[in-house]
C-alpha cells in the first residue's frame, strides 16, 4: 500500500487529526473495563427479588453493590462521552452546531456522572 501520510505527520506520530490516537486508546481501555463490569452490574440487578424501594436501597447501599455501581457508571460515562463524540463528529458538519453538541455531550455526561456518584454515596451512607 502506498504511503499516504506526509513525512512530518509520520514524525509527529499523532494521526491525521492530531488527537485521534489518545481517543482511540481511551475508548478501548474503557471498553475492556466495561466488559468486566457490565456483566457484574447486570447480574447484580437481575438477581434482585423485586425492585421495591427497600430492596433497591439495600442492594445499592451495600459496600459491594455501591462499588460495582461506582466503577461501572464511571467507566460507562467515560466510554459513552467518547462514543457520542464520534457520532456527532461523523454526522454534524456545521461548525457552530457541531461545537455546541460536543460541549453539550461533555457537560451532560459530566453532570450525569456527578449526579449518579452523589446518589450512590447518599444511598450507601
Amino acid at each position: 500500500m502506498a504511503e499516504l501520510r506526509t513525512p512530518l505527520s509520520r514524525a509527529k506520530g499523532l494521526g491525521s487529526a492530531r488527537s485521534g490516537s489518545g481517543h482511540f486508546i481511551a475508548q478501548r481501555v474503557s471498553a475492556v473495563a466495561l466488559m468486566l463490569l457490565i456483566p457484574v452490574f447486570v447480574w447484580m440487578i437481575a438477581r434482585l427479588p423485586d425492585m421495591s424501594y427497600e430492596t433497591a436501597r439495600a442492594a445499592i447501599g451495600s459496600p459491594l453493590g455501591a462499588l460495582v455501581l461506582l466503577l461501572t457508571l464511571t467507566a460507562a460515562f467515560y466510554h459513552m462521552r467518547l462514543g457520542l463524540q464520534v457520532v456527532i463528529e461523523d454526522y454534524i458538519s456545521e461548525p457552530f452546531t457541531r461545537a455546541g453538541l460536543l460541549i453539550a455531550n461533555t457537560l451532560l455526561v459530566a453532570g450525569l456522572w456527578l449526579v449518579a456518584l452523589f446518589s450512590i454515596l447518599v444511598i450507601a451512607a
Partner: peptide
C-alpha cells in the same frame, strides 16, 4: 439507558 439509570438512582437516593 445510562441517562435513565441515573434518573432512577437519583429518585432512589
Amino acid at each position: 439507558g445510562a441517562v435513565l439509570v441515573t434518573i432512577w438512582l437519583a429518585a432512589l437516593a
